[in-house]
Amino acid sequence: MPLVGTRPTTDFEHGPLLRPDGEPWVLPRVQILQVMYELEQGAMTSLLPPALHPTIPPTLVVTAWRVPESPAGPFTLAEAKVGCRSGARPRALSVRAYCDSAAAREALAARWGYPVSEGTIDFARRYDRSWVTVRAGGRTVLDAHLVDPEAISGADIQYLATLNTARVERDGAATARLIQVDPEYQFHSADRGMPELLAFDGEAWGLPGADPYWPVSASYAVADVAMPELRYLVDPAKPPLAAVERLHA
């Protein structure tokens, strides 16, 4: 059967505590930049917990959102995720993300389990390229670009559902879980271009040993994003076919 992750589950015990209540969020005209690279296969299984399979080949998915309007005010969010499979389902594991707004960090962590830290994020779009740069702890931890954009249809883009590293209440204790977040997108426009990853610090994203080395794709889109009501969690310690559980039993 397929390979499974070998990462110690203690690595997943430090996420935010999930408190998934509140009004629905629909975020109008979010700018979304996504850059995908293949990862060196040496870390194929060591980045993932036993509940997840690596994809063949393993991938790094960088996603950045510039959100002009939200109940928590405007914010920019950047994630660097590992492409994976939860059983047979395509997913992307997020161990650490960065956001430039304290109010948004608090809401994203509590309601959707985003493992967000504070960071300075530069998100820009030009006619020849778009990019996201993240600085944290006094250094640049990400510099990802889309080069030479060409217009495509939003229907040509597929975003993977994210598994956010967080904790949930189980039997009175805060327990590590991966939170499935699968927003809905209504596209206004979309571009595709060449990916370019000029800086990536795996440690800073909770992905030690991750070495993105082979460019795959880059896309930029403007979309209305409806944040989902959470339904499914993954217990990182269990085997893939036994790991998925409902948030509310």
Binding site: M1, P2, M36, H53, T55, I56, P57, T59, G83, R85, G87, A88, R89, P90, I152, S153, A155, D156, I157, Q158, L160, A190, R192, V216, S217, S219
Partner: peptide, 20 residues
């Protein structure tokens, strides 16, 4: 089930590369 499970571990073209 085994066949399909194996198939899902692969990376479909559409999942990696936006194209019509």
């Amino acid at each position: 089930g085994t066949f399909n499970y194996l198939a899902e571990q692969l990376l479909a073209a559409r999942q990696a590369y936006p194209t019509r």
